[in-house]
Design a protein around this nucleic acid. Structure first.
Lengths: 191, 191
DNA sequence: GTCTATATTCAGATAGAC
DNA sequence: GTCTATCTGAATATAGAC
């Protein structure tokens, strides 16, 4: 059974290096060096540097959308749905911290037309989150609030999660992490 | 009375362009072009491209630290202090959205030794915030919680603010913004 | 303060031999 | 799949004339 191809090795190495140095600062030569071969060989696996970025960004974005769609379509109440979203974000961050880091830090480096496509996906994700929150307000489980602000705030509040797993020294128990974050987002810091 | 020097014009132009395209993607030629002169003239105002980044990053960081120190040192209770911090972040974001955007998005592009200095300042700011939260828990105004997680979450939750002011189309009433954010951070989304 | 010219370095990417 | 060699373009930065 083959668990990893040479191409996957190359992509994973690229991903980690890009996380360390940033996309623009990472050269094809850097990646090749870490792989132990010459730059020219890199093009056995990809067509261009942009390919690496596109590949991870759109793949991971699809994963987030998929989960969000399933959560929105289920019969939970809005507060339960919000907990599910938080839980999902923690799980993806824990399992694929570098992919998530790329989504947070490097999406601006996409070039057209992929950039526009990706921005549209981001906006759509925000819309889905806003819908969830609006549901909750209508159901009476969430208080009256500015849904646009709440959406931006909540999504932003969990964007650091990858950092708790990209760095092994910071690795956190995901169960406890979820308990703490759900507590803060749903009920705030006040006693 | 002189309200703006040529150098300040140059720096402000650089700042806006870097916000639009990213630091690495912005060339000295881009900046010079927007200023209406040749690249070589840029070096009348700065010694290197890095200078631009350092200048804004450390200046704005000092401003945040200053405000935070004043808040920590005053006689408010912890919940009032937290409101003050949120208020301060909104005000700086509203007044200097591009400077704040630079702090959020471009600090990784600093090169040594400034990079390490800046990371230390970031960590110190987190420590100050953690101290504020710990005070609140001890005073009994904040609930028992993992202060490290709460610090990361709250600081992250307000990092998008610059975006509400960098883009004039999104400009928000800062008073209402503060009311909404304080409500969410202190009491959460539940009714 | 502005320009022309240029030094230097380095990036992404391709061709073609083994 | 690996290498050597190379094309092409572009970036930061400086020198020096006007």
């Amino acid at each position: 059974m083959k668990v990893s191809t040479r191409r996957e090795d190359f992509l994973q190495t690229s991903l980690e290096l890009i996380h360390e140095k940033g996309f623009k600062a990472t050269t094809m030569r850097d990646i090749a060096e870490r792989m132990g071969f010459d730059v020219s060989n890199s093009y056995n696996y990809i067509k261009s540097k942009q390919d690496i970025l596109e590949l991870f960004l759109f793949r991971t974005s699809a994963e987030f959308h998929n989960t969000m769609d399933n959560i929105l379509a289920c019969s939970y109440t809005a507060d339960e749905k919000l907990k599910q979203v938080i839980s999902a974000h923690i799980q993806v961050a824990a399992k694929k911290p570098f992919e998530v880091a790329l989504m947070v830090n490097e999406w601006r480096n996409l070039s057209e037309p992929k950039y526009n496509e990706y921005v549209a996906l981001r906006n759509l994700y925000e819309k889905k989150m806003a819908k969830l929150l609006r549901e909750g307000v209508q159901q009476g489980v969430f208080k009256e609030m500015d849904v646009k602000i709440a959406t931006a705030l909540i999504l932003s509040s969990i964007r650091w999660l990858y950092d708790a797993y990209a760095n092994t020294k910071k690795a956190m128990n995901p169960i406890e992490l979820e308990r703490q974050i759900v507590g803060l987002v749903l009920e705030g810091v006040l006693k």
